[in-house]
């Protein structure tokens, strides 16, 4: 793809975008329901964000300012690759600052900085079906959703507690949306689950290979499944960020030598950098010039 003029704005043709927008609107109208859509073959592999890319392409307008993160970071290779794709095919402005972005495409994280009305958060979803690993058949899981037959979901949690004394699901932690559909929030750590709830932004989920789109409209309820006597608890490494000293952000563990030394740093690179610019310094950080 060297000759860009051969391609439409944001790569997809307008008819395809309309088809995807219809699926998005249906998803917004039925929060948590997986809307089948005719996912297109994209010039990047399935499983690498084709669903998110199609949703983003259908949402983008020339005035948008796009941010792309993978594992919370703007500079991981796949985030770079997707950001470049849209710079090339849509020519939109890009940013690393969460609050400046109008559209944010993400894989595996929700930014630490609270989102605001008018922002759209697009998730890349590998397996949209929260029941998939309990029941491999699509025909079967579709019926289970239709009937709200979610007993099996709790059987899994029950087994966790009986074996480990607690619910042993650390990411991709299923939620029940607006009292109806059980939804897969994509493989975000369960630390991020509370941010799904009552979020001011529109949250859209795209699964390209599995041909599904679903959504959480602003200020939706999304209850992490649990038991009354074993309530859901968001968790993270019991540290503060070694660079910016944030006590409450999700941390990546970095191995610093072969003697077992390690440090913990914010997975949200924009959040960490902003804090350091504002003068916060962690035990292993250095002060940064204000920007």
């Amino acid at each position: 793809m060297t000759d860009q003029s051969a391609y439409n704005f944001a790569y997809l043709d307008e008819q395809t975008k309309r088809m995807i927008r219809r699926a998005i609107l249906k998803g917004v109208a039925i929060p948590g329901y997986q809307v089948p859509f005719a996912s297109r073959e994209m010039p990047m592999p399935y499983g690498w964000g084709t669903g998110g890319v199609q949703v983003t392409a259908a949402c983008l307008v020339p005035e948008d300012r796009l941010k792309v993160i993978d594992q919370g970071a703007d500079d991981t290779t796949n985030a770079v690759s997707i950001r470049r794709f849209f710079q090339r095919t849509a020519g939109v402005a890009v940013t690393e600052a969460t609050e400046e972005a109008t559209v944010i495409q993400t894989r595996h994280r929700i930014p630490e900085t609270p989102l605001t009305e008018g922002q759209i958060l697009v998730y890349q979803v590998p397996i949209p079906e929260p029941l998939r690993f309990l029941e491999p058949r699509e025909t079967e899981t579709r019926k289970m959703h239709e009937l709200e037959d979610y007993g099996l979901m709790h059987v899994k949690l029950y087994e966790d507690i009986s074996r480990h004394g607690q619910i042993a699901t650390a990411y991709d932690y299923p939620v029940k949306v607006e009292g109806r559909y059980v939804m897969d929030p994509s493989p975000i750590p369960k630390f991020d689950n509370p941010k799904l709830v009552g979020n001011a932004a529109i949250q859209l989920f795209g699964a390209g290979r599995e041909q599904r789109i679903y959504a959480l409209p602003p200020y939706s309820e999304a209850i992490s499944l649990d038991f009354e006597d074993y309530p859901f608890a968001a968790s993270k490494a019991d540290h503060a960020c070694d660079l910016c000293a944030a006590p409450d952000s999700y941390l990546d563990e970095v191995i610093t030598d072969d003697q077992g030394s390690r440090m913990f740093v914010c997975s949200d690179t924009d959040f960490c950098a902003s804090r350091r610019k504002a003068g916060h310094v962690g035990p292993m950080g250095t002060p940064m010039a204000g920007g």
Partner: peptide
């Protein structure tokens, strides 16, 4: 695509 995507970074879920 899906097979090979497991070589993408999974720091966050692995950390969890």
């Amino acid at each position: 695509g899906f097979l090979e995507h497991i070589k993408l970074p999974h720091y966050v879920d692995f950390q969890a």
